[in-house]
Amino acid sequence: MIAHHQWQWVDESRSELSGVLNRDSVPELWAQLKAWQPQQTSLEVSLANVERVDSAGMVMLIHLLEHAKKRNCHIMLSFVPTQLSTLLTLSNVEKYIAEHIKTN
């Protein structure tokens, strides 16, 4: 399992992201996330403690979904902030990741 101040494990099937996901924080966080080799077939990632997200954060989350998918792990995003939902809609990508968004 990876350890990063913005990525915390709740248990083996749940983790959470917190803080700000923007162009300043994403490079370091993504370096950690892309090294993650999932052992589970599904993982819930809570975004309840994400304070702010910009387009860089949105793209990182999309890459995380793809990274996990290539390793046979399905990620469900829970507590998706309104700001992220708006970005997904404006970028016309919400239909591609709808199967990864858990309605709370």
Rank of each mutant, 00 (worst) to 15 (best):
K34W: 02
C73F: 08
Q37I: 10
K69F: 04
R23P: 05
I2D: 14
D24W: 06
S46G: 04
L88P: 08
A56Q: 01
Y96T: 12
E94G: 01
L64F: 13
I75S: 09
L65Q: 15
L61W: 00
S25F: 08
R52P: 00
V20H: 08
H4K: 01
I62V: 15
V50M: 03
R52S: 08
A56N: 02
T82I: 12
P27A: 01
L88E: 05
L17I: 13
M58H: 02
K95G: 03
M58Y: 00
R23W: 07
S91Y: 12
I62T: 05
I97R: 14
E51A: 10
G57P: 11
M60G: 00
H74N: 10
D24S: 06
M60W: 01
N72D: 12
Q32V: 14
L88R: 13
N72S: 13
I97N: 06
G19C: 11
M1L: 06
T82P: 00
S85T: 08
V26K: 00
A3W: 07
L43K: 10
Q40V: 15
H74S: 06
H63N: 11
N49V: 13
L88G: 01
T103S: 12
I62A: 12
S85W: 06
Q8F: 09
N72V: 12
L47N: 03
S25M: 06
V45H: 09
T89L: 04
A3C: 07
E66Q: 13
T103M: 09
S91Q: 11
E28S: 13
L84P: 10
A31K: 09
A48L: 07
H100I: 02
E44C: 14
V10I: 12
L90M: 12
